[in-house]
């Protein structure tokens, strides 16, 4: 029953692959770096896009993530999964970017209407609310991208194309029961990506 090693065995294998890839990048292998880049670039762009809402800026920030890894490859430390590391680094850059944008905006505000303190205060709340909302959208985007292929496909057909389970089953050539199973799996993963207070019972 070697197949039923479950997530533990699966994780260990993936972790070893990660280790090898990270070690190769650290040793200066461009091929390894290329692999790392291609395996993660699009996902990270979609993720960062949820923060910055600009494709160009998302691409620039994600490129920065990789260039930073390369520039400091000899000292590159990855604890845990390399993908989690990349998401974390991308998030930091995205938030830095929003903060910079906000500082610029605020100094603009300050010069325009210095005396209207309440206006500035309201603005600060709006900005924080917006960031919390982007964080949530980004977490959902990441969860969707990290779904296994089948559940992801089913989820998108339902949520984006609004097909019924029967239509999905027909278009993928699988049983309705299987569609339901994938859908349940996808929604579980998505719910797991939500912050505690939104997960509910």
């Amino acid at each position: 029953m070697t197949q039923s090693l479950g997530p533990i065995g699966g994780d260990r294998c993936a972790g070893d692959d990660d280790r090898a890839l990270v070690d190769a990048v650290r040793a200066g292998s461009e091929a390894a770096f290329f692999t790392l880049f291609h395996a993660n670039y699009e996902m990270l762009c979609r993720y960062v896009y949820r923060y910055v809402r600009s494709r160009a800026i998302a691409e620039e920030l994600v490129s920065d993530v990789f260039l930073r890894v390369w520039a400091q490859r000899e000292r590159w430390e990855v604890r845990g999964r390399v993908r989690a590391y990349l998401y974390g680094a991308a998030r930091n850059l995205a938030i830095d970017h929003l903060r910079r944008e906000r500082v610029e905006q605020r100094s603009l505000d300050a010069t325009v209407r210095e005396h209207r303190v309440t206006g500035g205060e309201r603005r600060r709340c709006e900005v924080e609310e917006r960031l919390a909302s982007e964080e949530l959208a980004a977490a959902m985007q990441r969860a969707v991208d990290e779904l296994p292929p089948r559940p992801r496909q089913v989820f998108l057909l339902r949520w984006q194309r609004h097909l019924t389970n029967a239509e999905i089953a027909a278009s993928l050539g699988i049983a309705v029961k299987t569609v339901e199973m994938h859908m349940t799996r996808a929604l579980d993963v998505l719910r797991g990506a939500l912050p505690e207070e939104l997960r509910g019972g």
Binding site: F37, V62, W70, W159
Partner: peptide
Amino acid sequence: RRMSAEPGAWTQSFDAGAAWSRVSRVVS
């Protein structure tokens, strides 16, 4: 709402190949 009302927005594609050619100028 955004997830179910913005078709394609959650699966938008980015050109990793073009991005790589920019990044690899520095790398290689």
